Amino acid sequence: MLNELFTTVIISINVFLLILSRVTGFFLSAPFFSRTNFPSVLKMGFSIIVSYIILPFMVFELGRPVGTAELIFLGLKEIVIGIGLGYVAQMFFAIFVSAGALMDVQIGLSMSQVNDVELGGQVTITSRLMDIFAFLIFLYIDGHHYLMRSLINSFSVLPLGQSQVINGSFLEFIGKLMEYFFISAITVSIPIMISIFLGNILLAFMAKIMPQMNVFIVGMPFKIFMGLAVFIISIPFMADLIRKMLMEMYKYLFWFLNIIKG
């Protein structure tokens, strides 16, 4: 009886550490939770609380005590899984940052950059605006709740210690994710790109019929005005498009889990 109790306690500790590894890795890389204005102490405390809540449902997941070396190896695998989940979700916010950069290249604001402490570098003005806009929509649709649900459900889809970090289908998944990334970034920025393209045609036509007009001086403010006007008009449609793209995030999260499950 005492030996069974001791074994149960050891298994519980091992399972808790593995759960904590995945949860911590997720909070280190996931959108919203990984932001720099989210204190590290709060992240760690939140990770421990979430792991403790999950523990009763996973307490006999391993079924046997494991040695220290095996526990470390399994813990590293769980950290990689958590970080991978977070980065897959983070890629969807990178869509809107890239879309903003494409817009600024067309409008002529690509040299006007600001420091983004979240991304750790310089970004264009519209990129920063699109990132904030997408983040607000993410909170509006309770995306952080869906992220937490995805994390908790990941333990059912991919049980502890059963992952295959290197998998033959992983490269296919990365290719599909990058394909969706580029197509979505272009889709979001396409109204600006088309309007500026038509504006350039108009400027070329004006330069042809009025050679005395300095197109380079007139063109810059014209493209900025036109780009901002189209951006403001397209905001309601863009908001619905961003919402649909963010909801696609969860399909890719579970696809990622099924792939590394093997």
Rank of each mutant, 00 (worst) to 15 (best):
E179C: 12
G75Y: 13
L253N: 02
I166N: 11
I217E: 12
V105E: 14
G161L: 07
F73D: 14
G67L: 01
Y87Q: 13
I183C: 02
I192R: 04
F93E: 00
I233L: 12
I224R: 07
L139C: 09
V157G: 02
I53Y: 11
Q162C: 13
T187S: 11
L241K: 02
Y52I: 09
V117C: 06
M193L: 15
G100E: 03
G25W: 04
N37S: 11
I11L: 02
T36G: 05
I125E: 00
G120I: 03
F96S: 00
F60S: 13
I224D: 03
I259L: 05
T7D: 14
I242E: 00
S189T: 07
I242Q: 00
F92E: 00
M91D: 08
F138R: 01
N200D: 09
E70C: 03
L202I: 15
S40I: 08
G86H: 08
L198S: 03
N37Y: 12
I49W: 12
F96M: 00
G143P: 05
G84Y: 07
G67E: 06
I10W: 13
N167I: 10
L55H: 06
R149I: 12
S51I: 05
P221L: 05
Y146V: 04
V215P: 09
T124C: 08
R22E: 03
L85S: 01
K223F: 05
S184H: 07
P236D: 04
T24L: 06
I83K: 01
S184D: 03
K251V: 14
F16G: 02
V218M: 12
Q113D: 02
G199N: 07
L203M: 10
V59P: 11
L136S: 12
L17C: 09
I224M: 11
P211E: 04
T36Q: 11
F155T: 06
F237A: 07
M58Q: 15
M178S: 07
E172T: 12
V59L: 03
G227C: 09
V88K: 04
M220H: 14
S234C: 14
M213I: 15
S29Y: 14
G219Y: 07
I49E: 06
E118K: 00
N153R: 10
V9I: 11
V23H: 01
W255N: 01
Q212G: 06
L147S: 02
K251S: 09
E78G: 10
A101G: 12
F170L: 06
N258I: 10
L2T: 15
S112V: 15
L203A: 05
L74P: 07
S29R: 12
P31Y: 04
S40P: 12
K77C: 09
A94Y: 10
G120F: 03
I53W: 08
I259T: 10
T126K: 01
K244W: 08
I192N: 10
R35F: 13
V23L: 04
I232Y: 09
V230G: 07
F6I: 15
M111H: 15
F6H: 13
